[in-house]
Simulated assay, not measured.
Amino acid sequence: METAIYKILRADEWQALMADGTFEGAPVDLADGFVHLSTGAQVRETAARHFAGEAGLMLVAIDPETTPEGALRYEPSRGGDLFPHLYAPLATDMIESAWPLALGADGAHDFWMLEAESE
C-alpha cells in the first residue's frame, strides 16, 4: 500500500462527508477545482498555515490506492513541493482512519496519531 495522504476537515465538513458519503471540497477546493491533500510530511505545516488555532478539526487518512484512477495527482505548490490533489470528490470508502485533531497546550495542533503510526 502507498503511504497515506491526509485531509483536514472542519466539523461541518466532516459531518457532511459522513452524512452524504462524499465531500466535494471546502471553498478553497471548489475554487481550485480539486481537493487539497497533504502528505504526512506536509500536513503539520498545512494545519499551521490554514487552520491555526482552530478547534473541532478532523484529520482524515486516505489510502491513495482507493482513489479513482487518474484522479490523484502530485502537483507543485508551496515552495515547489509536490502536494497530492484529488480531482474527484472525497468518498468515505477512501478513508482508512480519522482522528479528532486537538489543539495542544501551545496552541498548535497535536499530531500524536502520526507519531503513533510511524512506530
Rank of each mutant, 00 (worst) to 15 (best):
M1I: 13
E2G: 03
E2W: 11
E2C: 13
T3A: 13
I5D: 07
Y6Q: 09
Y6I: 02
A11N: 11
D12S: 10
E13Y: 05
W14L: 05
Q15A: 14
A16L: 06
A16R: 04
L17N: 03
M18S: 05
M18A: 07
A19L: 13
G21M: 07
G21I: 01
G21L: 02
T22W: 03
T22K: 08
F23M: 02
F23W: 04
F23G: 05
G25D: 03
G25I: 12
G25C: 08
A26Q: 10
P27I: 03
V28T: 15
L30T: 00
A31K: 11
D32T: 02
G33E: 04
G33A: 09
G33T: 01
F34L: 09
F34A: 12
V35I: 14
V35G: 02
L37C: 11
T39E: 14
Q42M: 06
V43T: 01
R44C: 06
A47P: 05
R49I: 03
R49F: 07
H50R: 07
H50L: 13
H50E: 14
F51Y: 15
A52H: 11
G53C: 04
E54Q: 09
E54M: 11
G56N: 07
G56T: 00
M58Y: 03
M58L: 06
M58S: 08
M58D: 03
L59S: 08
V60K: 00
V60H: 05
D63N: 08
E65S: 15
T66Q: 12
T67F: 01
P68F: 06
P68L: 01
E69I: 10
E69Y: 05
G70L: 01
A71D: 08
L72M: 10
Y74C: 04
Y74F: 11
E75W: 03
P76T: 02
G79H: 04
G80I: 01
D81N: 02
F83P: 00
L86E: 02
Y87M: 00
A88H: 14
A88N: 11
A88F: 05
L90H: 06
T92F: 09
T92A: 10
D93P: 01
D93H: 13
E96D: 15
S97Q: 12
S97V: 06
A98G: 09
A98C: 14
P100R: 14
P100G: 11
P100A: 15
L103Y: 07
G104A: 15
A105F: 04
D106N: 12
D106H: 09
D106P: 00
W112A: 14
M113P: 03
L114D: 08
L114R: 09
A116C: 07
A116I: 11
A116L: 14
E117I: 13
S118Q: 14
